[in-house]
Amino acid sequence: MKTLKGKTLFITGASRGIGRAIALRAARDGANVVIAAKSNVPNPKLPGTIHSVAEEVRAAGGQALAIQCDIREEEQVRAAVAQTVEAFGSLDILVNNASAIWLAGIRDTPMKRYDLMNEVNARGTFLCIQACLPELLKASNSQVLTLAPPPSIDPKWWGPHTAYTLAKMGMSFVTMGVAAELRREKISINALWPRTIIATDALNMIPGIDLDRCRTPDIVADAAHAILVKDAGTQTGQFFIDDDVLAEAGVTDFSSYAVAPGQTLLPDLFLDPA
């Protein structure tokens, strides 16, 4: 079975949640993991910092580099890429996990929230790919994986929260466009999205979600791992769903990923019922 041993992953927003889970899954293979996020000091509302995750990565068997980085700032992103190469000698995989969310309609969305989401989600994804690309194209098995849903223009996903949907679909369209642009290069550029809502600390900031009806971030991390160990260039421009990826890999029982096994799971946004 292929592993990520010796590969260098640059993961945005990796100080908690799905990004942290992907970092720890790669660490168990012996990967080099760059934890690129804003969280440099503890936040009582959102546990986890780049430093705490770096310690966890090392304990799990990987090498870690914690970099405080706001992906809205071009200079910070390019400096972080340079630090990565200086520390590990290469950059093989970019995981665009960082994302901002605000689930409200036009009347209740301050423009600062609109700007934040679009700067982090769509622009941040584009910037990180652009900054990492020269190094990725030098790698022998380069991959970009973005946490974004299959593209959709169905009004039912836009009406309730146009600003968030625009920003999140921006990540999807960036993935689709850059994959098409670079389809002749030996690089895989894909997206991954969870079938169900994932229980993360950030959900505590959103009222009305029953965490017992969610899955843990480990399902997304395991699906990401299954995608990232494949040979570059064999699949690109794809929009994967986490449990589909794992089912293809032979997983038949998903109960271990449930926060509370036996509960009816909440479907994630942007996906129609299976």
Rank of each mutant, 00 (worst) to 15 (best):
H51G: 00
I67L: 15
V53L: 05
L65G: 02
A60I: 05
K38E: 13
V53M: 10
V53I: 06
I71Y: 13
P47K: 00
V57W: 00
V77F: 08
E74G: 05
P47C: 05
A59I: 00
K45L: 15
G62V: 03
A59M: 07
T84W: 09
H51K: 07
E56A: 10
E74F: 11
A54N: 00
Q76F: 05
E55L: 14
V77H: 11
G62M: 07
E73L: 14
A80E: 08
L46H: 11
A66H: 11
A80D: 11
Q63S: 14
S39Q: 10
I35W: 09
V53C: 05
V81A: 09
V53E: 07
E56I: 01
N40T: 13
V57G: 09
Q63F: 13
N40S: 15
V57T: 07
I35F: 08
A36C: 09
S39E: 12
P42N: 03
T49I: 04
E75T: 14
A80I: 09
A36E: 05
G62E: 09
K38T: 09
L65K: 03
L46W: 04
Q83N: 01
S52L: 03
A37I: 05
L46M: 12
E75L: 12
A37D: 12
Q68N: 03
T84V: 08
P42K: 01
A60N: 08
T84F: 11
T49V: 02
A64V: 08
L65I: 05
L46A: 07
V77A: 12
T84I: 05
A36W: 01
K38N: 13
V81R: 02
I35E: 10
S39M: 09
I67K: 01
A82I: 04
T84M: 02
V41P: 09
E55I: 12
A60D: 05
P42V: 00
G62P: 07
A36N: 10
S39R: 11
R78T: 12
R78F: 10
G62H: 10
I67Y: 10
R78E: 12
P47H: 01
R72M: 11
L65T: 06
H51S: 12
V41Y: 12
G61P: 02
Q68W: 01
L46F: 08
L46K: 03
A80R: 00
A66L: 11
E56S: 12
A60L: 04
Q83F: 09
D70S: 14
T49D: 06
I67G: 02
R72H: 03
E75W: 09
E73D: 15
N43Q: 03
N40I: 10
A37T: 07
Q68C: 13
I50V: 14
R72V: 11
P47V: 04
N43L: 11
P44H: 03
T49G: 06
G62C: 02
G62Q: 07
A66Q: 00
V53D: 08
I71K: 10
E73N: 15
P44C: 09
R58W: 06
E56M: 13
A79R: 13
Q83R: 14
A66T: 02
A79I: 00
A64T: 08
A54G: 01
V41A: 14
H51E: 11
A64Q: 10
Q68R: 15
V81E: 12
K45E: 13
R58H: 06
Q76K: 12
A64D: 05
C69D: 04
H51W: 12
